[in-house]
Computed example of a mutant assay.
Amino acid sequence: MPNGSLEKFIYTDSNPLKTTPHLELERLFQISIGIARGLEYLHRGCNTRILHFDIKPHNILLDENFFPKISDFGLSKLCTRKESIISMLDARGTIGYIAPEVYCRNFGRVSAKSDVYSYGMMILEMVGGRKNVEALVSRTSEIYFPNWVYEHLEQGSNFGLLNAETEEEKEIARKMILVGLWCIQTRPSDRPSITKVIELLEGSIEALQMPPKPVLSSPVRSPPESSTLSTLS
Rank of each mutant, 00 (worst) to 15 (best):
L6H: 03
E7H: 14
S14L: 14
S14A: 14
P16I: 01
L17Y: 13
L17Q: 12
K18M: 11
T19V: 15
T19K: 15
T19N: 14
T20S: 11
H22F: 14
H22Y: 09
H22C: 07
E24C: 12
L28P: 01
L28Q: 09
F29N: 09
Q30E: 14
Q30W: 13
S32A: 15
I33N: 05
I35M: 07
R37G: 01
R37M: 09
L39C: 08
L39P: 07
E40H: 13
E40R: 13
Y41L: 09
Y41V: 09
L42V: 10
R44Y: 15
N47R: 14
R49H: 08
R49E: 03
L51I: 15
H52N: 08
F53A: 02
D54N: 15
I55P: 02
H58K: 12
H58A: 13
I60Y: 05
I60R: 08
L62T: 09
E64V: 12
E64L: 10
N65R: 12
F66T: 08
K69W: 01
I70Y: 00
I70G: 05
S71P: 01
F73M: 06
G74H: 05
G74D: 02
L75P: 03
S76G: 04
L78N: 05
T80M: 13
E83V: 00
I85R: 12
A91R: 08
R92V: 11
T94D: 04
G96D: 08
G96Y: 03
G96F: 08
Y97W: 12
I98F: 09
P100S: 05
E101I: 05
V102R: 01
R105E: 13
N106D: 14
N106L: 11
G108S: 10
G108I: 07
A112Q: 12
K113F: 00
K113I: 05
K113C: 04
S114L: 02
S114K: 00
D115N: 06
G120T: 01
M126F: 06
G128F: 06
R130H: 10
R130I: 13
V133P: 02
V133Q: 06
